[in-house]
């Protein structure tokens, strides 16, 4: 599987896919999208990279250990943000009551916990979907 057209086209469009995925993740509280959708778009970029350049290339870009770290880290980040609510004396996963600044609605850094949770979920889903792809792809 050594296709020049595929490689050149992938090299051109993968940066745009990744930037769009990051946009969907970071603007989850302002526009349609969110952590799950953006994470899947990010993972789509990784999958295209693996299909065009082969598994070893993806393994060096996103090693197994890094993917596992992102997956566990995403869940821990989520739970940790929830525990902040308990530490400040309000409910688990509380937003404004736990002291997260809501900011000005409409700005990028606003929305308190919504923005932070979307970020964690996006990275976790990107790592998860690419791990699923790697494990379901038959090894040559």
């Amino acid at each position: 599987m050594d296709d020049l057209v595929l490689k050149v086209v992938a090299r051109v469009i993968i940066p745009f896919i990744q930037v769009y995925g990051l946009y969907v993740v970071l603007h989850g509280h302002l526009s349609p999208g969110g952590g799950f959708a953006g994470g899947v778009i990010l993972a789509g970029g990784f999958i295209l990279y693996a299909l065009a350049y082969g598994r070893p290339a993806l393994d060096s870009l996103l090693p197994d250990r890094l993917a596992a770290l992102l997956e566990s880290g995403g869940v821990l980040w989520y739970t940790g943000l929830g525990l902040v609510g308990l530490l400040t004396g309000s409910a688990f996963l509380a937003n404004a009551r736990a002291g997260f600044p809501l900011g000005v609605p409409g700005r990028l850094f606003s929305g308190g916990i919504v923005f932070l949770l979307n970020l964690g979920i996006g990275l976790k889903v990107a790592a998860t979907i690419s791990t699923l792809f790697r494990n379901l792809q038959e090894e040559e």
């Binding site: 929830g82 996963l93 606003s110 916990i113």
Partner: peptide
């Protein structure tokens, strides 16, 4: 309540954040 204009994101990541966990 959440500072997020997107109501779906507000429900997913704030009102029902426990469900998303």
């Amino acid at each position: 309540d959440t500072g997020s204009p997107n109501r779906v994101a507000a429900v997913v990541a704030d009102y029902r954040a426990y469900d998303t966990l």
